[in-house]
Design a protein around this nucleic acid. Structure first.
Length: 559
RNA sequence: UGACCCAUGGUGUAAUGGUAGCACUCCGGUUUUUGGUACCGUCAGUCAAGGUUCGAGUCCUUGUGGGUCAACCA
């Protein structure tokens, strides 16, 4: 159907070509390779959806591989969080693997390279090594230690491994070409000494392999057919291939690295460093703050896995720099929640309505459908009584014809209830309306089938019975930045664009059915937006996060 | 003063060398007991100049613009 007609992205085209050229489909294998040094964000979701999506499309296994070669930055906490996020997004990996599982194999291969004269131990300072690297436009120069004997290199490398040297004193380098046009090929470092405890291998090792030496070999060990990474690794590809070729056995599959453009999002930042800054400086309240573009933040905000997957699909992938419009992400969550979120009524900025001709002590439990988009969703009862809250901005003493809401002398429909007419209002000393006195039409009850209940009135308002209202706290989130591309200004710091009003907390009243809501339950507060129960909720008060407001056609006209 | 990558409406993404399409946004309208949803519609694009070709968004050349590459990070 539509899925089958969908055009292929460039990665899929590469795979299709490989298949045509004879790669058996059963050899297809992918991997998602995060470093466990932080939390996943919506950019990672692009990679996750791409790799696991390919797995689904081709019936191929996808590994979750932690690229854990730098014990200084990595922690078990991140491993757990990443697994949780990938699972939450709805994907199943074939195996969970760790680059650290391959440390011994990597070491053995390094010894082999030394024996073949393709690697050497350098004992210069990192500054000296950097100097000799040259620049993109000037060639590098050979290290004075480049031509040590195999025996000496071997002995030194074993000593490195045995902890005989201090951090920074020795490294193992691949002997490639200091004049190479690609700087990554100028005798890249394969191993450095790091006397740190690794979250998995403990103190077994004090030398750790670098990314380039590890990544391609890990792909090869796992027989990953297509190793997909982001564009900034393009220039690493020569090295990736060189390393793989040193150990490549022609009876096995030779993995292939391909690169796609990072997915950026408008009105936010995505780099780990900047996100960390937001957390550490208290601009947000943690990595899972609902304003963060992290998976955990989006989850807490009320996003669904499906919405994020749909967003990834809709945004697509390519090789050019891009900034996806956050409006697309918002469209995806509204689209999903419109079909699935139960409708309820809550009043965020209340003003009291008194139905003067309604019996004093009476309460009626009225029927309300849970979701007009889903017949299976059924209905619930909501209490109606003499005193109600409505939204303050739904009343004006006088207004023009465009204002469909409550105004003196005019009627509106109370959703799922009666038609009321505003007769008068009471104001306080400041002239602020504190009570609106209305009359209701007793025959107009929704669903009663009477002629009066069928009457068409232009406006329909949401409301909550004062006596039955559940007091809730509501966190209204807005975009964290006021600038579409906060990163995109060379002369300005991204923090200059922070939106000071990205969070507003209000006390609100909700219908009593919300008493049974539990953490992460999502609702549509009718006419307002989608909201989700925050983990900060207590037995005495529930906290709701606004995921996204509903489209507001009136707000535009009213300007 | 190098190498490599990229360039399609405001945004994102398509188009065996053969009618530039789709989605989001914006704007307008229809329906509506949510000014929501749904539906319909409008505006809007191949970076430039040459070349190859019956025919170029696509191939070639040059230019322009953007990006990447010099961590004992990944």
């Amino acid at each position: 159907m539509t899925e089958e007609k969908r055009s292929l992205n460039f990665i899929e085209q590469i795979i299709e070509e490989d298949l045509v050229e004879g790669l058996p489909q059963s050899s297809l294998r992918f991997r998602f390779p995060p470093e466990p040094n932080g939390y996943l964000h919506i950019g990672h979701a692009a990679s996750i959806c791409l790799n696991f999506g390919l797995g689904l499309r081709y019936g191929a296994p996808v590994n979750l591989r932690f690229d854990d070669t730098n014990p200084a930055k990595e922690e078990q906490e991140y491993v757990d969080a990443i697994m949780n996020d990938v699972k939450w997004l709805g994907f199943q990996w074939d195996k969970v693997l760790f680059s650290s599982d391959y440390f011994q194999q990597l070491f053995d291969w390094a010894v082999q390279l030394i024996k073949e004269g393709k690697a050497y131990v350098d004992q210069q300072s990192s500054d000296d090594i950097a100097l000799q690297k040259g620049s993109p436009t000037t060639a590098g120069t050979d290290s004075p230690f480049r031509n040590r004997s195999v025996e000496e290199n071997l002995s030194l490398f074993y000593k490195m491994k045995d902890g005989a040297f201090e951090e920074g004193s020795h490294v193992l380098r691949a002997k490639i070409d200091m004049q190479h046009v690609n700087m990554h090929m100028r005798d890249p470092i394969m191993y450095r000494i790091l006397k740190k405890t690794h979250h998995r291998t403990g103190d077994d090792w004090c030398i750790y392999p670098m990314y380039d030496w590890t990544h391609g070999e890990s792909d090869y060990i796992e027989q990953v057919s297509h190793s997909i990474c982001t564009l900034e690794f393009k220039s690493h590809r020569d090295l990736y291939d060189w390393y793989v070729d040193q150990v490549y056995d022609k009876s096995l599959l030779r993995p292939k690295q391909r690169e796609f453009a990072r997915r950026n999002l408008s009105y936010t930042v995505m780099s780990k460093r900047k996100l960390l800054q937001l957390v550490e400086e208290g601009i947000v309240h943690g990595w899972d703050d609902p304003r963060m573009p992290t998976i955990s933040g989006l989850r807490r905000r009320g996003y669904t896995p499906k919405a994020i997957r749909n967003f990834s699909e809709a945004a697509g992938i390519s090789k050019r720099d891009n900034v996806a419009d956050v409006a697309l992400l918002e469209h995806c969550i509204k689209d999903d929640l419109n079909q699935t979120a139960p409708r309820v009524m809550a009043v965020l900025n209340p003003v009291k309505v008194i139905i003067t001709n309604y019996p004093e002590e009476s309460t009626e439990w009225l029927d309300a459908e849970n979701n007009p988009e889903d017949e299976q969703a059924g209905s619930r009862k909501i209490p109606f009584s003499k005193e109600l809250y409505i939204e303050r901005e739904d009343f004006r003493e006088v207004a023009n014809k465009k204002f469909f809401r409550l105004k003196l002398g005019k009627e509106v429909r109370l959703k799922n209830a009666y038609i009321i007419k505003a007769e008068s209002c009471v104001k306080d000393a400041q002239g602020e309306v504190v009570e609106i006195h209305c009359t209701y039409d007793p025959l107009s009850r929704s669903g009663s089938g009477t002629e009066e209940s069928m009457r068409k009135v232009k406006g329909t308002l949401h409301w909550v019975s004062v006596a039955h209202a559940e007091k809730i706290a509501v966190r209204l989130y807005d975009r964290l930045f006021r600038e579409e591309d906060p990163d995109g200004h060379k002369d300005k710091d991204f923090k200059e664009f922070i939106n000071p009003d990205s969070l507003t907390v209000v006390e609100a009243y909700a219908e009593p059915s919300l008493q049974t809501a539990t953490v992460l339950d999502r609702f549509q507060f009718q006419r307002l937006g989608y909201f989700c129960v925050d983990p900060d909720s207590t037995d005495t008060q529930k906290v709701f996060n606004r995921t996204v407001p509903l489209r507001d056609g009136w707000a535009k006209k009213d300007r």
